[in-house]
Design a protein around this nucleic acid. Structure first.
Lengths: 246, 246
DNA sequence: CGACCCCTTGATTAGCCTCAACAACCGTGG
DNA sequence: CCACGGTTGTTGAGGCTAATCAAGGGGTCG
């Protein structure tokens, strides 16, 4: 959602705090360039030294690591307003491969600009820090899902994550969405094989928990889905400790 | 390692940048209090609203989440110089339970003091942000280990993580250490049962990769251990993008 | 129209869990 | 000092979950 000259990152952050004009300007400046990426294309690969970070303006992406045994693990999906490539800040090189799941619009910006943002806008720095912690916790929850629950629960968990994301952009009452992933990708995200993902999805359909037609998914018994998944919603972010706005 | 009036957090950060006196003072101020925690004791529980964060001065801890089905997933182990409780910054309440694995010395400090640090020392803010990203990546690597590798590889991976940590404090050439964890805890960290952890450990011993006596572990064929684990060392942190020191 | 990708389904296998029993070790109290 | 209970480590047998292997169907793109 881009409003008059708006920025996806600013819109995202505005969910949590009231941005000052100066802060909004600083965030909008990060999105002064655009780049289109076709679905299936890698934005950068593990080991690359990308000059830029990116704000996602439109589309879905995922980040994954490739293992020595030939398999891959999808870590995280990225949506409008997310910053991608952050891991290259800490390591110089990127630790993960980021790939477009759908056609995407990205806004590249140089890493140094984030450093300047940290200096001039401590509150934004703290807020972005906060969101990085939340992202870390999402990984932790996914770790628990994969480490300690059944195949069916893992697939259910992933669906819960997606519907939560959809609601951020499409509105509170959405209960269906287009799932642009192959079952192999779902498997790589949940630590399962594509074959077993298929069986689990059909099981959820048979039990009346979801409906599918093509890539379209509708959650018909969301309470039960969340229950089986053990899903915890962590949408609420605490901003009370942030420094004053600048 | 505490030097003359030193601070564990400052020592940790000094690995990556040369701290100015002002920065060092600010960090030391966070460790003006001490608290002893006996092994097996929880520092705080999931859902608690701890007033403080903590710097670990001595000892091992772990953070875990408890699942609806009664099992738990250990996310991460914490060592001297780590900041714990960071997740409570983002959520108000803590999202994880932190428990002392050994007797520990912790330094509590109020969350607001971190906000003030962000304002007055942007470079430290950026550096701590960097370390949080690295922490997030450690979780991602563990996710790949649990999601996509065998039980044996997962146990091997955990051992690789520990030896890397030991070397940060005990020196480059260490190849043995005391592992103060029960096999059940190792299982909760790797997504396995204690019984199966036992079998995997014995397998590693039989194959001449490690030796054990009691809680003491020696890595006799580390190259093979790392190879089987698919372990990636991410010790090197990039600090070139940080803002100027203050 | 053919090639390729993705979904689907069945049969079989393998890896890890569960249950169970016992040994070794620890801290505690007599 | 020993007796004791509780925790942890070890080992075996059997079962279940998810992987593997295999084959066919539908859709899409060139």
């Amino acid at each position: 959602l881009r409003f008059l000259g708006g920025s996806c990152l600013a819109d995202r952050l505005a969910h949590y705090v009231d941005l000052t004009p100066a802060e909004r300007d600083a965030l909008e400046a990060l999105e002064d360039q655009e780049r289109q990426v076709k679905r299936g294309t890698a934005v950068f690969d593990e080991g690359d030294r990308p000059r830029d970070l990116f704000v996602v303006q439109k589309g879905w992406l995922h980040s994954c690591v490739l293992l020595g045994n030939g398999s891959r693990q999808i870590m995280r999906f990225h949506f409008a307003g997310d910053i991608i490539g952050i891991s290259s800040l800490a390591f110089g090189a990127s630790a993960e491969t980021v790939t477009a799941v759908t056609d995407c619009t990205l806004c590249p910006f140089e890493r140094d600009r984030l450093a300047r943002l940290f200096e001039s806008h401590p509150r934004l720095a703290a807020l972005i820090f906060n969101l990085t912690i939340a992202d870390r916790m999402a990984l932790a929850d996914r770790l628990a899902s994969i480490g300690r629950t059944s195949a069916r629960a893992r697939v259910a968990y992933l669906l819960c994550e997606f519907i939560a994301q959809i609601r951020l952009t499409e509105g509170r009452d959405a209960s269906d969405f287009v799932l642009p992933l192959t079952q192999e990708e779902i498997g790589d995200a949940t630590g399962l094989t594509a074959v077993h993902v298929n069986r689990m999805m059909r099981g959820l359909v048979e039990d009346g928990i979801i409906e599918r037609s093509g890539a379209h998914v509708r959650l018909t018994d969301e309470a039960r889905l969340r229950d089986e998944a053990g899903y915890i919603d962590r949408a609420r972010i605490d901003t009370s400790w942030l420094p004053a706005a600048s």
